[in-house]
Computed example of a mutant assay.
Amino acid sequence: MQHIHCYCPQSWDKALFDRVAVLMQQLRPQYPTETLSALLAQQVDDGYKMVLAQNAQHQIVGIAGYVLGHKLAWGHYLYIDDLVVDEHHRGQRVGQALLDFCQSLATQHHCDSLHLDSGSQRHRAHKFYLGQGMHISSFHFTQAVNQP
């Protein structure tokens, strides 16, 4: 098993956004990498944070994008918006390292809970999350608005 180092970058530049966008495209293939890079920069400006997982060769092999917040239903929470592991590094405990790091962040920020949504078609991801002690607490419903 390779050593994985997880961290939250203290500062961002275009080169780092571009590197992250290449990997994020594996989760969000509907966006070109240039668009993803710009969208990630916008989200960071709006309070979105990212945990990066690097291997010993300093390659970014996983990302967890999250926000902190408070809701009546959840109390103070950490919500993982995006969790992606490079397809060539799956099964190497990168996802576990990212989730463990996010759980540690939730504890540090005195959160009551940690949440994420996973697409209904992502059966391998569901098996992973359940194996990490998470449970399915609800169904997430959505409706498009202001679209033709």
Rank of each mutant, 00 (worst) to 15 (best):
Q10K: 01
S11H: 15
S11C: 12
S11E: 10
S11L: 14
W12C: 08
D13Y: 15
A15Q: 12
A15Y: 03
L16R: 03
L16M: 15
F17W: 05
F17M: 03
D18M: 08
D18L: 07
R19H: 07
R19I: 08
A21Q: 01
A21W: 03
V22R: 02
L23T: 06
L23Q: 03
M24I: 09
Q25V: 11
Q25N: 14
Q26M: 11
L27Y: 14
R28C: 04
R28T: 01
Q30W: 03
Q30I: 13
Y31D: 08
P32R: 00
E34A: 14
T35K: 07
L39P: 00
L40H: 02
Q42R: 03
Q42N: 00
D45T: 09
Y48T: 01
Y48A: 00
Y48N: 03
K49H: 06
V51L: 11
A53L: 14
A53P: 08
Q54R: 12
N55I: 12
N55W: 05
A56G: 07
Q57C: 08
H58E: 10
Q59G: 00
I60Q: 00
V61E: 02
G62R: 04
G62Q: 13
Y66L: 02
L68K: 01
L68Y: 12
G69I: 10
G69A: 08
H70D: 00
W74V: 07
W74E: 08
H76K: 15
H76R: 15
L78N: 08
L78H: 04
L78P: 09
Y79F: 06
I80M: 05
D81M: 12
L83C: 12
D86G: 15
D86H: 15
D86C: 14
H88M: 12
H88G: 04
G91L: 13
G91R: 14
Q92C: 14
Q92L: 15
R93C: 15
R93Q: 15
R93K: 14
V94M: 15
V94D: 08
V94K: 12
A97M: 09
L98S: 11
L98I: 06
L99E: 01
F101I: 04
F101A: 02
F101D: 04
F101C: 12
Q103T: 11
